[in-house]
């Protein structure tokens, strides 16, 4: 039994232990603010775990989503709900106990059944020998994309990814439909939301210097997705986060003046439209849906390069949608739906 130093089990066990601690703490704490913050720590740890498993793209996504967006959304919501958990109340829901017993039995069975699973990190496991070698060996020659994850995500399984973009689009739409109010008489009682006092000179200065860097970095992540971890989703989240930062450093109105409500909506739909439109263009040119090879004639390049360009184009679509959706989710959730004032 030889253990490669690149997979340190001590490292894993420590992180997993910390993750379990964080999970338990997040559920046990009484203040929702504390819970949200501990959930953020949980997200850091899981990202570390994924980096260690060499899933850099996944870690990147988790870094963008878990570390920033989820926590901000939690905090935005926590403004509008009772932040304290009421304790010592009689429990009379017997059905919950029954469910719990069943869950524990399932847990024991499933833990027991792990004996049957191939051992962890075994290069000879079925998962690593059936499809994945084909992807690794062919992706570069078929799509000219060294990042195999990007190639699989945006080309081999681009149909999934299109619907991934549709999912975030749907989420923005649902949040809008659920939360946003057009009539002004239902406005939130303002005494629940004290105004911010004073000017935050330091913060604004920081924002002015950070935000452009952030946006350029987001574009780099988006466009460099072929060669390094990253891509449309991660780039989009970071770009969206720059607007959230703007809203946090100034206020919601300020950021919404830069990126107006209608523009957000158009971008939400426009990104998916770009994605699906490219697919439909391929379809119109006689290939199947999302067969980027069809673009070869238009772009005047080979099939393989056409696929590479196609991947880039759909990644841009994903980026636009995700960016707008993150901004939209923040705007809606942090302002309670009236788009007046955020966190």
């Amino acid at each position: 039994m030889t253990w490669d130093t690149s997979l340190l089990w001590q490292f894993d066990i420590l992180i997993l232990l910390m993750m379990v601690i964080c999970a338990v703490t997040a559920l046990a704490l009484e203040g929702l603010l504390s819970s949200a913050i501990v959930t953020g720590a949980y997200s850091f740890l899981i990202c570390l775990m994924w980096t260690h498993m060499r899933a850099v793209d996944v870690a990147f996504t988790e870094a963008a989503v878990g570390a920033a967006i989820s926590t901000v959304l939690f905090l935005g919501t926590a403004q509008y709900v009772n932040r304290w958990i009421k304790k010592d109340r009689p429990r009379e829901q017997g059905i919950k106990q029954i469910t719990l017993v069943i869950a524990v039995i399932c847990a024991v069975m499933m833990l027991n059944a792990t004996r049957d699973l191939p051992e962890w990190a075994d290069p000879a496991s079925p998962a690593s020998t059936h499809l994945s070698p084909r992807y690794i060996e062919q992706a570069y020659f078929e799509t000219a994309t060294p990042n195999v994850v990007t190639a699989v995500l945006a080309d081999y399984r681009s149909y999934d990814t299109m619907f991934e973009a549709v999912v975030v689009f749907a989420a923005a739409l649902v949040v809008m439909v659920v939360l946003r109010r057009t009539s002004h008489k239902h406005r939130m009682a303002l005494h629940l939301r004290p105004k911010r006092a004073g000017r935050d000179t330091v913060l604004r200065g920081a924002a002015q210097s950070i935000i452009p860097v952030m946006q350029i970095f987001a574009l780099y992540v988006l466009f460099h997705g072929h060669y390094s971890p990253g891509g449309g989703f991660q780039g989009g989240v970071i770009f969206g986060a720059s607007f959230i930062l703007l809203a946090l450093c100034y206020n919601l109105k300020f950021s919404m003046n830069r990126f107006r409500e209608h523009a957000v909506l158009w971008c939400c739909a426009g990104g998916v439209l770009l994605y699906a439109g490219i697919g439909a263009a391929c379809l119109a040119m006689g290939w199947n849906f999302l067969g980027y090879g069809a673009l070869a004639g238009v772009l005047g390049v080979s099939d393989v390069m056409a696929r590479s360009h196609g991947i880039l184009a759909v990644e841009i679509g994903v980026g636009i949608t995700v960016m707008a959706v993150m901004v939209s989710l923040y705007n809606d959730l942090a302002s309670g739906g009236d788009l007046e004032e955020g966190l």
Binding site: H130, L131, R134, Y135, Q138, D155, Y156, R157, S158, Y159, D160, W287, N288, F289, L290, G291, Y292, G293
Partner: peptide, 11 residues
């Protein structure tokens, strides 16, 4: 075949 990929590889 979505994207003209042969099944187990594509969707």
């Amino acid at each position: 075949r979505m994207g003209d990929w042969i099944p187990p590889m594509g969707i």
